[in-house]
Design a protein around this nucleic acid. Sequence first.
DNA 1: CCATGTACCTGAAGGC
DNA 2: TGCCTTCAGGTACATG
Length: 267
Amino acid sequence: MPELPEVETVARELRTRIIGKEINQIEALWSRSFQNMCDVEIAGQKILEIGRRGKYLILKLTKTFLIIHLRMTGQVLYFEQQNQCDFDDYIRVVVLFSDDTCILFKDVRKFGRIYHVADPDDQIAHVGKDALDADYEYFSEYLSTSKMNIKAFLLSQKYISGVGNIYADEALFLSGLHPAVISNKIRGKKARFLFENILYVLNNSILNMGSTISDYRDPSGEKGKNQFYFNVYGRAGLPCTSCGTAIEKIRFAGRGTHFCPKCQKNK
DNA sequence: CCATGTACCTGAAGGC
DNA sequence: TGCCTTCAGGTACATG
């Protein structure tokens, strides 16, 4: 499911709810969903800060860290009372707090992970700078030296992180760039325009509390609203919002890729 | 370095 | 109804 705007929405909501809380117990109902990679006891630690890099949530505890990646269908759900939890067949990890509140990690497809680590870099050192922390100098440095097609470049998390399939397609549409354009051919004003459009689609989606295609929910169980504002994602066959041409969907860089064949001719 | 395929999982949707 | 295929907000890894 979730890309940067959805994970950011989760981070913001969690900050208002679980900062300062003491963990009583963490239990994995599907063992692979929770990877305990350090010896320090979790019970008794408090949640001190909640950060994010790309699509990773970073919970700083008193001594160690919990790193959460939602992958395709993960949800972090918050409940005020442990006996009112909405348990179903897809709850993979349970975190109980000492004040009787809790969070449940729900994940239909079991791809998501919660890692317990001594140092966040043990898990996310390979992840590039968060898209919202990157400036244009940083972005263009990588763009100008990459021979990848631009769709694959944006999907890779090693340059800037947080952009996934939805926001890559949306940013390329706004930039008038075909997904197959080679990254280092995008220069000058076009490169800057692309960078601005990436920030725009991400920030705009955050304002709309993220996009819900099917599974994404925030910690309160609410859907996002940004899916109502897509220009190309999920709009195959529908008219381009700019020129009216039917939006095309192709398989590209291993993913479903949506674009306007008229507005994004630029190869 | 770059592109592609596969694996990890489950459920929904479409074709027959 | 049921069976089969394809697809899904992601990423790691193996192979040309």
